[in-house]
Design a protein around this nucleic acid. Structure first.
Lengths: 121, 121
DNA sequence: GAATCAATTCTACAAATGTAGAAGTAAATT
DNA sequence: AATTTACTTCTACATTTGTAGAATTGATTC
């Protein structure tokens, strides 16, 4: 089960805050902010999908993510790779470097990073 | 307007075939294949969204993509980058190389590719 | 030319998603 | 204690998505 768009948006906020009460979440929305009930519905659905949980903190709930942003993200990227590049990550990688336009510096940085990875193998 | 999941699946088939009649599309589906009417509905919705068009070819229609797979894909990736990495492609890149596991060969290949890109700047 | 085939259009309907009102509860404030 | 605040639950409803039957049409085969 994966997150819908508006759930994902909320998840972004939660990831950023690490943990938050309703109020904090709503505040973090850009205007026009959704109704509290809307956020509540989303949170409940996200609980059902096992993406968030909460701890009762006094009278209200402190919500927190159950999945790490990077894990969630990795799954996404892998999905994309599977879909668009017949499961070839390297094909994806080359596509990526060609398409997104990185500056020379960024490319150098990336190269170093890859170098380090190579040495790690 | 973007494609829904099942629309995207169909789009994948169409991209692969470059152009196709209903029959070809349905054949390309893994079992259980959808009803022709299902595919027809999807195709019409995709037309509305301007992702496909067709040429009347004799009695039936030859469908073809209006958007290139790479363009579509680039938009996706950029969306992801925006969402997950505050718009920093390089941050994404380093995340990517760390997370997806490329073989040593693939990494070497990628490095060369980046090298060529650097020389191009 | 009757029956079949391939494709299309129209219509429909269940499930998922986006959004929020109404009503309830518990704590904080006046 | 009455009111307000913060939050939650229940319910609801419009829109989008996934899926496909019924009916129609034009071409094809028997």
């Amino acid at each position: 089960m994966s997150l819908s768009n508006s759930e994902e948006q909320l998840m972004q906020i939660l990831w950023k805050q690490k943990q938050a009460f309703m109020k904090d979440l709503i505040e973090a929305y850009p205007d026009p902010k959704p109704a509290p009930t809307t956020v509540a519905t989303l949170l409940k659905r996200m609980q059902d999908k096992q993406f968030v949980d909460y701890k009762q903190q006094g009278r209200s709930r402190k919500y927190f993510p159950l999945v790490k942003k990077t894990d969630y993200f990795a799954k996404h990227v892998n999905g994309l790779i599977k879909n668009f590049f017949n499961d070839s990550a390297s094909q994806f990688a080359s596509f990526f470097t060609e398409t997104t336009d990185l500056s020379k510096e960024e490319l150098e940085e990336l190269k170093d990073l890859i170098d380090r990875q190579i040495k790690n193998k």
